[in-house]
Amino acid sequence: MKSIVRLVTSSVGKKYLMALSGFILSGFVLGHMCGNLQVFLPPHWINSYAHHLQSMPYGLLWVVRAVMLSAVAIHAATAIVLFKENKAARPEAYRKDATVRASKASRTMIVSGLIILFFIIFHIFHYTVKNMYGLDQLMINDLGHGPLEHPVPNVYAVMYMGFSVWYVALFYIVAVFMLCQHLSHGVASIFQSLGLRNEIWRYRLEKLALAYGWIVFLGFASIPVAVLLDFYLGVPIFDKSTFIEVYEQAKNCAGAIQ
């Protein structure tokens, strides 16, 4: 037990915690993005996908949720400890400070990280608990195979209506940009922290991490951008037939404000 405590409290051990939790989180982010991009397909795609996730057997949904939440908790808590220790290691700052190589993203991990943490909390209330903006009212009776016994959440409509609030959409875009920055350093760091790279792979992995960050950004940001284009500028991207009444109501409200 003592040796385990010694491991996780050591400077290198904390890197492992960051790397392993970061590995889980960055993998999840890519899967989550692929799932979300189904919103560009006909509504029953994402609705049945969401329904299948929600009704996984053996309580698997909660297993996944528990793993994800622990990863977030470990990642955030370790980051705060590291930040404090690192500040304490240099009590007196350089009067003239310079940076030779370290990227802006790598030096602002704590800032991007805290914004992402705040975003995750908001995001869970916004789209998982759905107790904001009346999104919990949006249900559907048909996943494309005829009527269902019980109505299920109309995730397609939830996403659309959620992003039709412009400042929410804007916050999402900012948050996923922060995620892009965070990943561009973090993904490469995973390999360094676990000692799984050499001088040749270092530069390859840094490019890979940058690409990873931007793919995740473009994938996620495309959805609020598309909704904003559809809702405010009338670009026909989404099929609003399953929630046409809610849509028109919102459209009238937005029109009245304008």
Partner: peptide
């Protein structure tokens, strides 16, 4: 001493060109 967060500033200033490779080896 602080914790390494893989900035690479150390390698950039090292007068003897020690690389982050060695930190990866230490981590391993």
């Amino acid at each position: 001493f602080g914790n390494c967060t893989n900035f690479g500033e150390c390698q950039a200033v090292c007068p003897k060109g020690i690389t982050l490779d060695h930190i990866a080896k230490l981590n391993r």
